[in-house]
Amino acid sequence: MRLPRFEYLEPDDLTQALDMLASHKEDVKIIAGGTDLLVRMKNQLLTPAFVMSMKQLSGLSYIKNHDDTLTIGAKTTLADIVDSDDIQEGYTALAQAAERVGAETIQHHRGTISGNILQDTRCIHYNQSRFHRSGRQPCHKDGGKICYARDEGDRCYSTYQGDMAPALIALEAKVVLSKKDGKRTINLSDLFTSDGFHPFSIEPDELLTEIILPKQKNNSKSAYQRLSYRSAIDYPITSAGVMINSKAEKIKKARIVVGSMSRAPLFMVKASETLAEKSLTDIDAFKEAAGIAMDNAGTFAVHNAGSTLEYRCDMTFVMVLKALEQAAGIEK
């Protein structure tokens, strides 16, 4: 398939990049590894006038360990994340998430962390060729007024299937968004709008430049679990990123995030809270939390990511439970 025509921009440094974004705004799309963007462009889901590459912004490729944070440059590849001992040890969920993205040979080396976070939401009725989408009315995400995934759906329910964000949100990540005249740091969870049509709150002139992971106090362990039909080159149909913060075998804080079940990763507040002060070996408590997470996530999901809805809901329970057990160090 052909890429539609566009003008290619290749800024030499960050300042130039931010200038370009400021002047082209909505007309420009940023390309990091391109493994999400180019597929969508080939399907003509978007036809930007300008494509700005991050190729020369080598300053944005790093993993740095500070006193109370770990920072990751936006352009860091998934392969570098998998290879990082700091991440493998301190932020296991993130490394586990990166390991399972796409095909090791392609997505891990071309794919970047910023591109992974900012990949578009997906839907089997939308991520299709122009031919497939012709001969029927366009759906909401395609600029129309109907939804093929949910009967009488009055909005878009496309699913966020990225692997890294659920893990990052469990780890309380923040992101730095830079633009010409400044920058802002927000919680990663706030980057998501929960709007299938427009999934991110990033502005067209903003560049995601850095991911900040806080260092957790106490004993902190995280895990990521995801499910797909195939062992590689397969988006998750449900996933769970969890972090458990404990002291003297008691859980002080838990964070459960469910992915691939809604328009954004779902931070399961209620399910997470039930785990406070529970013992690290309390499997019943884990099951209860997983059950709540499943029930809550189930209300968001629509049948647009393959498999069946029932199966994806059931598996949300299993993924959350497995992740919790792993983070709590319960061997199975």
Partner: peptide, 20 residues
Amino acid sequence: KDGRVLNPTMLEYKLPLACD
């Protein structure tokens, strides 16, 4: 969906891989 194949490509059609 209404005579449209929803998984016409190698990504969505679950062809087993060597690792499977």
